[in-house]
Design a protein around this nucleic acid. Sequence first.
DNA 1: TCAAAAGTGTTGGACCTACACCCATGT
DNA 2: ACATGGGTGTAGGTCCAACACTTTTGA
Lengths: 281, 281
Amino acid sequence: MEKEYFRPSVTVDSIIFSIRDSQAENYRKLPKKELQILLIKRAQEPFKDKWSLPGTFVGEKEKLEEAVNRSLEEKTNIKNIYLEQLYTWGDPLRDPRTRVISTSYMGLVDSDNIQIKAGKNVGDIDWFNIKLNTLKQSNKEKKNGYCKTEEIEIILTNKNETLKSKVKVVKELVNGNLIIYTQILQSDLAFDHAKLLIYAIERLKNKVEYTTIAFNLMPERFTLTQLQQVYEILLDKPLLKANFRRKIADMVIETDQQEENAGHRPSRLFKFNNNWQPHIF
Amino acid sequence: MEKEYFRPSVTVDSIIFSIRDSQAENYRKLPKKELQILLIKRAQEPFKDKWSLPGTFVGEKEKLEEAVNRSLEEKTNIKNIYLEQLYTWGDPLRDPRTRVISTSYMGLVDSDNIQIKAGKNVGDIDWFNIKLNTLKQSNKEKKNGYCKTEEIEIILTNKNETLKSKVKVVKELVNGNLIIYTQILQSDLAFDHAKLLIYAIERLKNKVEYTTIAFNLMPERFTLTQLQQVYEILLDKPLLKANFRRKIADMVIETDQQEENAGHRPSRLFKFNNNWQPHIF
DNA sequence: TCAAAAGTGTTGGACCTACACCCATGT
DNA sequence: ACATGGGTGTAGGTCCAACACTTTTGA
């Protein structure tokens, strides 16, 4: 009675971002911060010993969000974090084994506040620094819009390793509609995870401007300069202090604590203002 | 060697919107426009003879976008339209037969420009007018944010039928992160399609403000008042003419054509400006 | 004393809102 | 003539970028 349809495997993968200190230059200067991503080293084929996004197959009686949370806890020891569904990847050839459709989720954490640990089927786990280089760029005018092609090099580094990927991103504007194609030219990451990463970075940068998403990357209490550093990294441009502070004034609450022993005037600590409501709400 | 994992079925479903005239009152007044959605009547179990979103199972060697386009062409006769992936729905109980995971796509068309036709496995096809009523509403303050609960009645009507659904939408603001749960209380639509519809409407309304998405609903040439009507329907509020025109001035190009026989001063026809670039591009 | 960062005030311009007003047409 | 919509101008307020300036600390 019931026709037999083709059944693919379905997985979830998570792109976990954090913003972490690299190094302080001297006692006076503030430590530099950088955008980082959490990767795990695969213990099994395919892509054995390759670094990859933490993910898992979706269980028979499991919601997608349940699967993401389970995979994070099992493989990385991360629980109860902010997660957001991004996109579903269904290219028939994206997994060499068999047809696997994957839904990607983005998570943002303050890495000082969590303890990562390599879990089930995980060879290794680490934070990797993210650097993007635009190698080539072209901009063509077409009859119903524009076509912008970029070749982007993704360089991921931890203390010992450097992972490189090269991705071609074609952004087309067809009758005002933005259409994006991505193609992996070369990648040290498993599967098509370089694509998932590029997409997540793009989304993260967009959402910073109109949500309070960046506060997920902050500790409970923070200075306004720390917050500004995070915004500057995500927006990828320097901001003017006075203007930044006016802009985020309503989203934070002053505490009576201060940071000390900093080699300069102590800065006040702030916390997120839970009474803040976005315009949409 | 390869462990056997559970495999669900995977489908794609499309929410196709259009803005269509309802009725003109007299020779002078402009026709009223309303937001409508394209539905098909199922010819097979489950939910036989129920109205539903056009969708299909994803084929073995088919991309998700290929599956959406195929299903639209096969079932509704629609080709080459603007489509956008929205969300992937994975609740284990959303299909009574077996585990089915579905990715929803949103499409926007000018319905005067396409010819719909009931295709394969389609009992009937039609445009339904969309009306949303908020039945109940509550707003609770919590220690780390807010919780807003809404009971929404969705009324879909064509010439002969009225389809009602009732949905409970819980919007929570947890440390600044907007989390939305939806629950179907009652629905005349097949499966959980009322949920997919509510989600798509929300997304459509949001995107109108910062994209040129609304132009997909317009014919090739249009008057500025027609365009304003579309914006007013999507934003669900009246706009001031002078201000609206200044806002969209750069997105349109004046043509030398005019509308005539309208019972009032003839209005100039405009077309979309393909050289318009959004800030992000 | 002084480098470094904390923190605040001012000014000009861009943009948005609200409202007022005149124009052209078909019946 | 007049109802109806087409079309434009202006005044006031808000918001934002850019810049200048003062304050406080630890070594």
